[in-house]
Amino acid sequence: MADQNLNQTFSYHLQIASFDIPTPLSYPVFTMGLLLYLFSVFCNLTIMLLIVTQRTLHKPMFYSLPLNDLVGISSMLPRVLADIVTQTHSVYYPTCVFQAFVCHMYGGGVLFILTAMAYDRYIAICCPLRYNAIMSPNNLMKIIIFMWLLVIALIVVLLALVTRFKICRTTIVDTHCNNPSLVRLICDDTRINNYYGLFITAVFQGVSLLVVIYTYIQILITCVMNKSSDARSKAIQTCGTHLVVFLFLEFNACFGLIAHRFQQTDPFLRRAFGLSVMVFPPILNPLIYGLKTKEIRQNVLGFYKRKVSSVK
């Protein structure tokens, strides 16, 4: 009976790791984090509002990224900020599993979205005459739906393999819940979880990396062969920002995955990289893609000009 009660307690109440921020710094850190969160929400909501209200922006590729970024940063940062102030650092097990589901959906989603954007740029630069036929709204919608169904299916199986076990520990080693942290709560044989984790990593990281490498090699060849310096500079400018964001995400995600495989990795460094994956892309993406995409940039400027004029 005692063991049963212990398992029930472990199943519902967990302690979650923190950054051990000194008390005098907790409120300044909270304020800075809150401002970053509000800034990200404002930027992503602004882009989503424009996409909904402007018919010319009704493209699946436009609204997928800000929506995914908004869900990703909201799934983790508010809780981390609350823990910094309250110093509670506790979470219920079902809530932890749900947070892990949303976080992994965000991670898989952003990788696939950036991969789809790389393919879109490849068609636009290497096959400009066929772009409207290949990347039609109908085909784009099919790509987006398939992408999200694949992400959801892979993540559901990933967490179903975790929740089939009874846990025997109560400490989440990261500042937010994820699959590696949940697996560490289990004392039984988790080899199947590890094998599937490697498989899902290969799908998300490997497929995305191969597609991006292939598309950018083709884009590079096209740019080298293109005699128009203006077209070449526009292609490099368009693809350069996408490549920086993609490589930043890949580096952080790979480090976080590798860090969980090696016990000697500094916990603070592992948590910092895990946090950066969830926080920085949702802040940078609306600035990079919102301001670099001509259609969105023009509509944003026009929207705020109309607001200023109406106030006057």
Rank of each mutant, 00 (worst) to 15 (best):
L81Y: 15
A82G: 04
D83V: 00
D83H: 06
D83W: 06
D83A: 03
I84C: 06
V85H: 00
Q87R: 15
S90I: 09
S90V: 12
V91I: 11
Y92H: 10
Y92S: 11
Y93G: 13
Y93A: 04
Y93E: 05
P94T: 10
P94D: 14
T95Y: 13
C96Y: 00
C96I: 07
V97N: 02
F98M: 13
F98N: 12
Q99I: 10
A100D: 05
A100T: 01
F101S: 08
F101E: 01
V102F: 00
V102Y: 03
V102G: 00
H104Q: 11
H104Y: 07
H104W: 07
Y106W: 00
Y106F: 05
G107P: 00
G107H: 03
G107A: 10
G108L: 07
G109Q: 01
G109R: 00
G109W: 02
L111Q: 08
L111C: 13
L111S: 08
L111E: 08
F112T: 10
I113K: 00
L114Y: 00
L114I: 03
T115Q: 07
T115N: 01
A116G: 11
M117W: 00
M117L: 04
M117Q: 04
A118L: 08
A118N: 09
D120I: 07
D120E: 09
R121C: 14
R121P: 07
R121E: 06
R121L: 12
I123M: 10
I123K: 03
I123F: 02
I123C: 05
A124P: 01
I125Y: 06
I125P: 03
I125R: 04
C126R: 05
C127T: 15
C127I: 11
P128E: 10
P128A: 09
P128K: 06
P128Q: 04
L129H: 03
L129N: 15
L129V: 04
R130V: 05
N132G: 12
N132I: 09
N132Y: 09
N132A: 11
I134Q: 05
I134T: 14
M135V: 15
M135C: 14
S136E: 11
P137H: 13
N138A: 11
L140N: 15
L140E: 15
M141I: 05
K142V: 12
K142C: 09
I145K: 04
F146R: 15
F146E: 11
F146V: 11
F146Y: 07
M147Y: 02
M147T: 13
M147V: 10
L149Q: 12
L149V: 14
L149D: 07
A153W: 03
A153G: 14
I155F: 08
V156Y: 06
V156T: 15
V157D: 10
L158T: 12
L158W: 14
L159V: 15
A160M: 08
V162F: 02
V162M: 05
V162N: 02
T163G: 02
T163P: 01
T163D: 10
T163K: 02
F165C: 12
F165K: 04
I167M: 04
I167D: 04
C168R: 15
C168D: 11
C168Q: 12
C168L: 12
R169M: 06
T170N: 15
T171Q: 09
T171K: 03
I172H: 02
V173T: 12
D174E: 06
D174M: 03
T175Q: 01
T175E: 04
H176M: 08
C177T: 05
C177E: 09
C177F: 01
N178S: 13
N178G: 13
N178H: 14
N178I: 06
N179S: 14
